[in-house]
Write a protein that binds this DNA or RNA. Structure first.
Length: 479
RNA sequence: CGGGGCGUGGCCCAGCUUGGCAGGGCGCCUGCUUUGGGAGCAGGAGGUCGGCGGUUCGAAUCCGCCCGCCCCGACCA
């Protein structure tokens, strides 16, 4: 493996992250404060994530639509908890056409308000329900402090907004979509996650319940990886969305919303990356196989390129893989090896004169850091299986890491000390009261990432205040 | 919003203390030699020194104001 030009993860994780994002060509800062330019290598990871999600949305009966970016202020202000939660981070357009606007326009921080305002027109009867819709879009949330992918003032996401005739159906939808997120996060991004319910403090503004997925990054800090909200009838009441039920009675509709963002590109980087750069899961890697030709003379070049091109064509045409034949003449092989490793490409094929003489190629695996010699035919026929194996290996490695960093809390002091020095997830009894939660957070800088989806008696008093335990809470320092 | 830092060829930075030809490394272009783990040599292109004003014979450098960005905290996906 090449010597890295990156800071070491163990010495400076934030520095490592900033550098690997830049050097691997994933993203850079935009000209406006807190904004992000997503570069092709980063955007492709998002595109593959989008595809995985969108296919599953369709498979569960959802359709895509699109609502406008600009929302009249008065619409935004109808649901009290919602506007209170979002007010500080809403960007507002005050001028247009060279004039001050009569009514300012909010740039959407999320679209519940404009969508539920419209749903009131779309929903009259129980026969109109359910509405199972989703949109892919950008949103703006004015943030104090930003980090590429993890928190920028504008980001890309998907927001699902469904309306239902019954509470049960809406709750089922909320949990179903959380499961879709879990499947994509674990099976596609190879990021293992824990599933749970947010406390009142951490809940989405306007939601009755917020369900979450939490992953653990390599610096042992938690990352929220997707949330699904049961909104009850809060938005239906604020925007007067009623329908006539089977019995001829007016009822408020039940709502859900769920979102998944470009943040997970950052989550994937921080879950799998190592001191040599990215390690991308094959399912989302923009390039799954890089072929590096090696030659000195023109004769060698044409002989090597012929084999390399044939392999590329077969891997693309017959095996449907994403392959890059690196025929750039201005770089030498060693440079290319390092670059593809930095960019996290799972497999690299090296073809040179020595290989041609032996009717073989060299295959290097990014995740294992090894090289093996295979015949051309073997290399081609085993490539899909090797990629599947790498996908699985990344997930298993991350799962082992997560398991190693799960701690059961026995005393508050041990927890406070441990979460500070070791990081990771800490599980223990909590009284269920917000004031106590806030005190613990102030003392430890850790937050409750989630409690079990179905409330469970921990069978022990609260680790902090000693009152009867109401919940088994999982704590961590988080992004 | 508080604390800290920084704005100088595409990128990273030196020069500023003590005013006097605008420099280095990387990258880029050309040529030759190279090519199995980040190549070497030679030549070359590229600059309103963040902006405005002031002091001065003379300002990247001193003074004032402004703008922008990054990092650390409080808020957040």
């Amino acid at each position: 493996m090449a010597k890295s030009k990156l800071p070491k993860q163990s010495e400076d994780f934030p520095g490592w992250y900033v550098e690997v994002v830049k050097q691997a060509g994933m993203a850079e800062h935009g000209p406006a404060k807190g904004s992000m330019i997503i570069k092709p290598h980063g955007y492709a990871v998002w595109e593959h994530t989008q595809r995985a999600l969108d296919d599953r949305f369709k498979a569960t009966g959802h359709e895509n639509f699109y609502f406008p970016l600009l929302i009249p202020m008065h619409l935004l202000e109808k649901e009290a908890d919602h506007i209170e939660g979002f007010a500080p981070e809403v960007a507002v357009v005050t001028h247009g056409g060279g004039q001050k606007l009569e009514e300012p326009l909010a740039i959407r921080p999320t679209s519940e308000t404009v969508i539920w305002n419209t749903y009131s027109k779309w929903i009259q009867s129980y026969r109109d329900l359910p509405l199972l819709y989703n949109q892919w879009c950008n949103i703006v949330r004015w943030e104090m402090r930003t980090r590429l992918f993890l928190r920028t003032s504008e980001f890309l996401w998907q927001e699902g907004h469904t309306a239902h005739a019954t509470e049960r159906e809406a709750i089922d939808e909320t949990l179903q979509m959380l499961d879709v997120y879990r499947e994509v996060t674990e099976d596609v991004l190879a990021v293992p996650v824990l599933k749970g319910r947010k406390t009142a403090n951490e809940r989405f503004p306007g939601a009755v319940e917020t369900y979450t997925l939490e992953g653990l990054m390599r610096d042992r800090k938690a990352l929220q990886c997707g949330t699904s909200h049961f909104l009850g009838q809060n938005f239906a009441k604020a925007y007067d969305v009623t329908f006539l039920n089977r019995d001829g009675k007016q009822e408020y509709a039940w709502a859900t919303s769920w979102g998944y963002t470009t943040r997970m590109v950052g989550g994937t980087i921080m879950t799998h990356g190592d001191d040599n750069g990215l390690r991308l899961p094959p399912a989302v890697a923009p390039v799954q196989v890089a072929i590096v030709p090696i030659y000195k003379t023109d004769e060698e070049r044409s002989a090597v390129m012929e084999v390399a091109t044939r392999m590329r064509d077969e891997l693309v045409g017959r095996h449907n893989l994403r392959v890059k034949l690196d025929d750039r003449d201005q770089y030498r092989p060693g440079f290319k090896f390092s670059e593809w490793e930095l960019k996290g490409v799972p497999l690299r094929i090296e073809v040179g004169p020595r290989d041609l003489a032996n009717d073989q190629v060299v295959v290097a695996e990014r995740v294992y850091g090894n090289k093996k010699q295979l015949s051309t035919g073997e290399a081609i026929s085993s490539m899909v299986e090797m990629l599947n194996d790498i996908q699985r290996a990344l997930y298993e490695e991350a799962t082992a890491f997560l398991d190693d960093n799960m701690h059961q809390i026995s005393t508050f002091d041990e927890f406070a000390e441990g979460v500070e020095t070791e990081g990771g997830f800490w599980v223990g009894a909590w009284c269920g009261e917000s004031d106590c939660e806030i005190e613990i957070t102030e003392r430890t800088k850790a937050t409750i990432r989630f409690v079990p989806i179905e409330q469970e008696d921990p069978g022990a008093p609260c680790m902090h205040c000693g009152k009867p335990g109401a919940e088994r809470a999982t704590w961590a320092k988080a992004y």
